[in-house]
Amino acid sequence: MSASSGAQKATSKFFDRLFSKESLRYLCTTHFWGPVSNFGIPLAAILDLQNKPPDMISGPMTGSLIVYSLVFMRYSLAIKPQNYLLFGCHFVNEIAQLGQGYRFVMYKYVNDDKKTQVSADQKKVNN
Rank of each mutant, 00 (worst) to 15 (best):
N38Y: 09
N51D: 11
V118H: 07
K124L: 14
P42M: 06
K123I: 14
S12M: 05
P81T: 07
A78K: 15
N93Y: 02
N51M: 03
Q122R: 14
P60R: 12
L85K: 01
I95P: 01
P35I: 03
E22Q: 15
A7I: 11
Y102L: 10
G40C: 14
M106V: 08
T29E: 09
V110N: 02
M61V: 15
Y26W: 13
Y26C: 00
D55R: 10
K123D: 13
K114D: 09
N127Y: 11
S69V: 02
I46K: 02
N111T: 01
Y75R: 01
A78Q: 11
T62Q: 00
V105W: 06
Q122C: 06
T62W: 03
V118W: 05
R103K: 15
G40Y: 10
F14K: 11
K115V: 07
P81S: 12
T11F: 12
K52Y: 03
Q50L: 15
A3R: 08
M1R: 07
L18E: 04
H31L: 14
L47Y: 12
F39S: 15
S69T: 04
G99S: 10
S119M: 13
L27C: 09
E22S: 11
K52C: 12
K13F: 09
N51P: 01
T11C: 14
S119G: 00
F14Y: 11
S23F: 10
R25H: 11
N51V: 04
P54S: 12
Y75I: 01
T62S: 10
Q8M: 15
I79R: 06
L98T: 05
T30H: 09
M73R: 05
F32H: 06
A120T: 13
N126I: 11
F39D: 02
K108S: 04
R17M: 12
L77R: 07
K80H: 07
K124Q: 12
T30K: 10
V67L: 12
S5A: 09
H31N: 13
D113H: 08
H90T: 04
V125D: 11
P81M: 11
I79Q: 14
G6M: 06
A7W: 10
Y109F: 15
M73G: 01
K108I: 02
V36E: 05
R25I: 05
G99N: 08
G59I: 15
W33I: 13
Q117V: 08
K9Q: 15
K115N: 08
A45K: 02
T30E: 07
P35N: 09
M61G: 00
F14P: 02
A10N: 07
L24N: 07
M61W: 10
M56H: 14
D121Y: 13
F19Y: 07
K80F: 08
I79Y: 02
